[in-house]
């Protein structure tokens, strides 16, 4: 990543817009590019750093046009692209919305109230918790959901990675460069990750424990062990470790919209072919949406479709 990153520097405040985009991940930033080009007065809200979940990964190798690029560098490209076509950015978290009023209202954690004629929900997802004993208790003592953020604390130590999808395998591989011992625990007997990631994992010094779930995270001051349960035999064992990295799926950041917007049983937003939700003028793009694939390329695609459709309101 660039040694000195400027993406968090925010801009002066103006309150009324054509389009408000909530979240500056790839979905929101793609929408911002298209909205800017459509000549719509656009604002993008981001509570953390522009780029979204792509900042949580070391290398990306499946976004067309980039054989291999760091998450950070790709986020930078998306961001400067959106800025080049005039989108405004605010480093504020949306905490409350009124999607029935006209124009729609969005309140931020700084107490500012913005309005917009249309809204794009691009709040993405957060790592899902395992939901086991000790997970919360050891949250700041060895449990992590972000290898690039916290990996450096486990130099020369032992870590367990939980999950079998792309994120678990990719981030596990990242941890093999830092930690002394990386053990991936997966509840099935094979990985769900893309073939190329699997091949790399099997070639690395990563260890695997199959058909097994973590039922408890324990220790005294810091994480010292996990309790593992074999789902076929029911047998439980204690496995010593210094850290636990959890990649077992996603929960949608949908809470503030739930009052207005229809979701599936897991909280993912239901949108039509044009990404419009049950509320006219409100769109959902990227990971937040009920969709068969949650990737950068699909989030970017959603953003484009949403904005092209939205132009009917202007």
């Amino acid at each position: 990543m660039p040694l000195f990153n400027l993406s968090n520097v925010s801009k002066p405040v103006e309150l009324n817009y054509d389009v408000a985009i909530v979240g500056a991940g790839p979905g929101g930033l793609s929408a911002a590019i298209y909205a800017g080009r459509a000549g719509l007065k656009t604002i993008v809200f981001e509570k953390a750093t522009e780029g979204g979940q792509i900042l949580l990964t070391d290398m990306i190798e499946d976004y067309p046009g980039f054989t291999s690029i760091s998450g950070n560098a790709l986020a930078d490209e998306f961001l400067s692209h959106a800025k080049a076509f005039g989108a405004n950015f605010a480093n504020e978290e949306i905490v409350e919305v009124d999607l029935e009023s006209n124009p729609k209202k969005l309140k931020t954690d700084l107490g500012n109230e913005y309005t917009a004629k249309t809204v794009v929900i691009a709040t993405g997802s957060n790592p899902k918790k395992l939901g086991v004993k000790g997970e919360d208790e050891f949250l700041n003592r060895g449990v992590s959901y972000c290898a690039v953020c916290d990996g450096s604390f486990f130099k020369g130590k032992r870590v367990v990675v939980v999950g079998g999808g792309d994120s678990a395998v990719e981030e596990g591989l990242y941890m093999t460069k830092i930690a002394n011992e990386v053990t991936l625990v997966h509840r099935r007997d094979k990985l769900r990750a893309q073939k190329i990631a699997q091949d790399r994992a099997f070639k690395s010094n990563m260890k695997f424990i199959w058909n097994t779930v973590v039922t408890e995270i324990g220790g005294t001051k810091n994480v010292e062990y996990v309790i593992l349960k074999n789902v076929q035999t029911g047998e439980t064992t204690k496995h010593e470790t210094d850290g636990v990295f959890i990649y077992v799926g996603l929960t949608p950041n949908v809470e503030i919209f739930k009052k207005y917007i229809k979701t599936d049983e897991n909280g993912f937003i239901l949108a039509d072919d044009h990404m419009e939700t049950n509320v006219k003028g409100v769109y959902a793009v990227g990971d937040i949406r009920k969709t068969p694939l949650r990737q950068i390329v699909t989030a970017a695609s959603d953003g484009a479709i949403a904005v092209i459709d939205m132009t009917k309101y202007f």
Partner: peptide, 23 residues
């Protein structure tokens, strides 16, 4: 015991929390 960031320590340990909470 910092192992996950941001980790905020209040008054040398009288209080602490982890995560970038809203204001």
């Amino acid at each position: 015991n910092v192992s996950s960031v941001p980790h905020i320590i209040i008054n040398d340990g009288e209080g602490e929390f982890v995560g970038a909470l809203p204001e």
